[in-house]
Amino acid sequence: MLKDITLGQYFPGNSVIHRLDPRMKVILAIAYIVAIFLAKSVFAFALVALTTLMLVIISRISVAVVLRGIKPIIYVVIFTMIINLFMIKGEGEPLFSLWRIRIYEEGIYRAVFMALRVIFLIMATSIFLTYTTSPFSLTAGIEGVLSPLKLIRLPVHDFAMMMMIALRFIPTLVEETDKIMNAQKARGADFSSGGLIKRAKALIPILVPLFVSAFNRANDLSVAMECRCYRSGKGATKLHKLKFSALDFVSLLIMAIFITAIVLINKYVTVGFSL
């Protein structure tokens, strides 16, 4: 049951996007979000849609997987659409009006644009970060991007280490939860019937052993790290040193062109609706 939960959802591969430096991927993901929010006209949105599609194709992640990633946020999307549809007041006559509800043309456009923004945002960030980057290189990437903050004495390395350990132990804990659940089921525990309170109570036999073993594990790990003289990254060198390649710079250049194109389209292409 729990095995179906895939956290991080990394799909190993060797596409161009897989091979990018994780630091660059973090930067590109942020830049892409900026680009999505810069897009204001129909044509700019069309360009974003096209590039997002290109990203899916280049990453060689199956379309079905990408679409499945959108599923959990579909209610958020519908909710924003409804809010936009009813709250936006346009300049012309309403297209539809009933009592105090008035729907304007602008409202429809805005609702669609908002929905598309959220969908593109999820698709692009998951392609750059979760689908094509293993959790460990993602952590390394975030550490790299945040490393300037070390200058103002933020313990960036410690944060990255904590994140890495947390990610490392997710599968272990999932497996352990599975085992404990099976053991309690073998003793007749029932997790799927009864009211809310009964179900919450049924979790005690799982949570107690799980916490006990998680604390034991954390203790063991900290002792093991101290035994190997871990001192929070002081003077530590990396096994896999991150290095920007030509590919990274090319991708950054393409991103810059993409953002410029969107700004220019917003400004000069005036056909069709724009926000």
Binding site: E176, K179, A183, Q184, A186, R187, V208
Partner: peptide, 16 residues
């Protein structure tokens, strides 16, 4: 499950 009792590996982890 009541008729076929199963003791899993390292069952001490199921104590709560």
């Amino acid at each position: 499950r009541f008729r076929v009792g199963l003791v899993m590996q390292y069952p001490e982890y199921q104590l709560f």
